[in-house]
Amino acid sequence: MTAQDLAQDNRLGEKKWRRRSLWALLVLIPLTLAVEAYDSVKALLVDNDLFERRVAWGESAHFGGSDWKLTDLRGAFGMKNLPPGTVPVLADFAVTVGNPDLQNLWLGCKVMLIDAEGRRWLPTSAVRLNAPDNVQTCISAIFSGAKTGDVLNLRETFLVPKDVTNTIRPAVGVGSERPYFLLFQMEKD
């Protein structure tokens, strides 16, 4: 083999590898984007209540290892010392505990009210109403030591503008079920 042949072989090899490298980019660039974005997409899905699961009025839904049922949603009208145009709203749930590992399954438990425009209200600390001893909040229930078959009475208190009281619906999200959350429908829906 002469030096000329060797040089030509090298050039051909170089061309072949350049073409292979360019084709490889087609795979590698999307792959890099996917690997880089994986954590962000996972965080987006695990930390947010994105997709609703509707629960018809009077029915219960299995969620986070337990059966959730909305028992009442009512406004506490006529309270004094509140900002004008606002009304406290109480949402009551009866939850039949299935899997008692609430500290893992209910982690980051969030009860919300969602109106027709999709605006979300979280429980308030501005209003304190007396409740019976057996009524808990979602977070306190996590540490209640409830066993399988127990029925927990949960109540969350919200403060919302008066004009949304007709369209708000209660919703529940827990860490083990995100990005899905329960959206409870009312009797009139």
Binding site: P83, T86, R119, R120, T124, V160, P161, D163, V164
Partner: peptide, 9 residues
């Protein structure tokens, strides 16, 4: 400050 939609604070 905790703020809610539609409620001026």
């Amino acid at each position: 400050v905790t703020v809610d939609p539609g409620l001026q604070k």
